[in-house]
Structures are given as structure tokens and as C-alpha cells.
Design a protein around this nucleic acid. Structure first.
Lengths: 217, 217
DNA sequence: TGAGATATGTAGCTTAGGATACAGAGGGCA
DNA sequence: TGCCCTCTGTATCCTAAGCTACATATCTCA
């Protein structure tokens, strides 16, 4: 099952469904930092992340990037699903944030599974609706928050257990849709206040409550 | 069928499916300008717009509004669908833009239809994926365009056939998430150039190509 | 080990956008 | 018909955010 047994919906397949899946699924491994789907590309299957992380993002006319959402292991690249069902061209770029392994289920196979397997129907609706909520939350964020609030939110949400976020300032800027200089400026202010510490390629949160307070102000 | 025969997916139901639908569907008519779903509300069914228009929007902490998307006749209020499947509380407000008639399919009925009727499965996935694309387009707009570009886009997209948009400047501001004064300022500039004409409660597009050029600049 | 590439930090300047305030026009209703 | 409410238009001021430029530090690799 090419690693898809990690996904509960696929474990719940009938024997016939498992046979159908196994017949067409392939696995691909990509290095980090690579764009694996370009906007406008005619996508040919459902992508499930087995390990690593995918980043779905868009470019502004000014050339700046903004992350729309991230895809963690066990999750699927929903836009590929959409392209399956609606024959729409891909509306964003997809990049590997780090070395990433993806299982790809070909469109006809996925469609066949969807028609006959309740667990795949549930998986599809759940994945789509979760994405709708995420996008709405992101849209609300962009509309209603100042840049320093969005940066603080990004740090809190994406830092590891120990409080460190391993990303360059350029990468952070690419996520929240601003310039590297603005990220440096805002991080500088936070560092000056003792709330964080910066180093090359990383930000360490020292006072989470202070960052949370920025968001609420 | 309470008007739902306008929706192709419901016309395609089996006799058993039609019986199930008719057993639970209700119709509601609302005046224009009313909030019919509040954020956080525990929504109890799938809402289909028969006539009128619904507006799904969010508030900023500053009290400003921003429209997430509109729902036209024949379309469904997807967030209600999401709340059905995932028991999530509603993440936005829903308001009638004008007098609106809505058919409401209770959650258990919709779930039953989804499980047994391929056309409802298709309708659900199509509605969700269409919304995902809309939200991504909106997110891309907000990230990458100046306010005058978003206003021009809004005018072009929402004007009637004859080129007139029947909305107050306050309403327009509420859609694109800015202040009435900014909308007045930007419309004033466009009017000065002869591209549009403003009057109370309406904007008439005089030169569509000029507005399109703003978006591309 | 050092060159070169990448990342960080900072400065100066400009413009977009928002806040606040207020005046006047238009329309509805008693 | 006139009052009052709603809507439009404009002015002034301020700050956030972006652009451009450049210096310095850190890391990789030959």
C-alpha cells in the first residue's frame, strides 16, 4: 500500500478496494526546496504526504510569495483532488519544505475508490472541508491583523516543542507574504524586548505569552 | 421538493432519495440585510439558495467586515455542509444581501442522501472544491493586490449586465474589507478620470477597459 | 583555509491605507 | 413640505509597510 496504511481511511478499505489502490499507487521522494507542482499544471492524481511537508503557495505580481497552507504527513494535497474531480488546472504552486515522500493515487483509481468506498468518501469530504476552514481562517488573518500580529501568530503556530522555529527570515517572509526586511525589522523589535532570540536560520521563542499578547492587542 | 428541483443533483435522485429529501426539507424566506447565521452557531442543516443571495463574511477585531464569498441561487451554503460532517461550529457570519429564499435539508437527511446517492456525493465534492478555489483566489487577491485593484476587480465582477453596481459605498467597503472613506476616495479618483460615475447607492462603469488596466498594472 | 554564497541587520525614503472629523446632498416618511 | 436619516465627498494627519541600498556575519565547499 506504499505507506498509505498510515491513513485511516485506506486501512478501512474493502479487500477489493485495497486491490484497486495497490494496482495504481506510486511513491515519489523529493528533495527539500523543490517546486513539484506549478500553477496551471494539469495534475494527474491524488497526492498523500507520507513524510516531510508540502507547502502550497502563490506569487504576487510583485514576485512575492505567500503560503496558502501546509500539508503534513497523513494529509493529502487537496488541490490535486479538486483537479481530479473538476478538471480544473492547479491554482497554486506546491513546494517541498523539506525532503518529502508522497504517495500518488492516479485519478481514475481515486475516482473508483470514491464511488465504492465510504471511507474514501468521508476522507475526501473531510479533507476538503478542513481546507475550507483553514483557508477561511487564513483569509480572516490577512484581512484583520497587522503584520506583527501575523508574524507572532506564525512563530507560535510553527515553532517546535522546544520553542525554536528552524526557518530563515526569507522563508518566513515567503509564508506570510511580506519582505525579508520587514520580518527582520519586526523580529528585531521582538528580540530587543527579550521575547525572542534570532540566529542564522532560526528563531527561538523566549516568552510565548508576550507573543500571544501581541496577537490580542 | 421545495424548489430543490432547480438543482441538477437533486433531480438525479432515485425515487427513494426523493422520498427521503421530501420528508425533511423545509423552506425559509428572509428579508434582505439580515444575519441568518452567526459565527459559532451550531448549524443544523444544508442550506440551498433558491432565490436572492447570501453573503458569508467575517469581522475584524477593529469591527470591519470582509466578505469571504457570496452564494447565488442554485448554490449551497458550504459551511453548513461542513458543520454537518465535521461537527465544527460555524466560522463566519451569513447575511442575506437581498430578500432570500433558502431550502434547508436537515443534517441526518443530507448525510443519508450522501451515503446512498452518487449525485449528492458529486454535488458535495463539487461544492466544496469550488469553494476552495474561490477562497484561494480571494486569498491571492488580498495578498497581492493594492486596494484600488481589488476595488476595480469587485466592480467588474459584480456589476450587472448594463454596467451598474447597485450597492452603497459602505456595502462595498464591507465586501472588500476597508473603510467607506477609502472606497469614496478611490471611486472619486476613478470618477475624475471618467472611468465610472457615482450616485447614491450605485456605481456605473463607463470604461471597463480602464478598470481592467488598473488590475493589471 | 579562504573565497564566495547566503543570511541578517539597518537606514532612509516613499506611498498606501486608516482614523478622525465635518459638510453637504439625497431620499424617505410623517 | 420639511425634518431627519442615510449616503457621499473631502480634508488632515499619522503609521504601517514596502522599496532600495548597503554593511556585516555566518556557513559551505573546493
Amino acid at each position: 500500500m506504499a505507506g498509505l496504511d498510515k491513513v485511516a481511511a485506506f486501512r478501512a478499505l474493502s479487500e477489493r478496494g485495497k486491490a484497486l489502490l495497490n494496482q495504481g499507487v506510486t511513491t515519489h521522494r523529493f528533495k527539500g526546496g523543490n517546486v513539484i507542482i506549478d500553477k496551471g499544471q494539469d495534475v494527474s492524481g491524488a497526492y498523500f504526504v507520507l513524510e516531510g511537508r508540502l507547502r502550497v503557495f502563490t506569487y504576487t505580481p510583485a514576485g512575492r510569495e505567500a503560503t496558502l497552507y501546509l500539508i503534513e504527513p497523513g494529509e493529502t494535497c487537496i488541490l490535486a483532488l479538486n483537479s481530479l474531480f473538476n478538471r480544473l488546472l492547479y491554482p497554486a504552486w506546491v513546494q517541498t519544505e523539506k525532503a518529502t515522500t508522497v504517495a500518488v493515487v492516479p485519478g481514475p483509481v481515486y475516482r473508483g475508490l470514491f464511488e465504492s468506498e465510504p471511507s474514501v468518501q468521508g476522507l475526501t469530504v473531510e479533507a476538503l472541508s478542513t481546507l475550507v476552514f483553514r483557508l477561511m481562517a487564513e483569509l480572516e488573518q490577512v484581512h484583520s491583523h497587522r503584520l506583527d500580529q501575523r508574524l507572532a501568530s506564525f512563530l507560535l503556530v510553527h515553532a517546535q516543542e522546544g520553542g525554536t522555529l528552524q526557518r530563515t527570515q526569507q522563508e518566513i517572509a515567503g509564508h506570510i507574504g511580506t519582505t525579508r526586511e520587514m520580518v527582520a525589522r519586526l523580529l528585531g523589535r521582538m528580540a530587543k524586548q527579550g521575547w525572542i532570540e534570532t540566529s542564522r536560520g532560526a528563531v527561538r521563542i523566549v516568552k510565548r505569552t508576550a507573543l500571544a499578547a501581541i496577537i490580542k492587542s
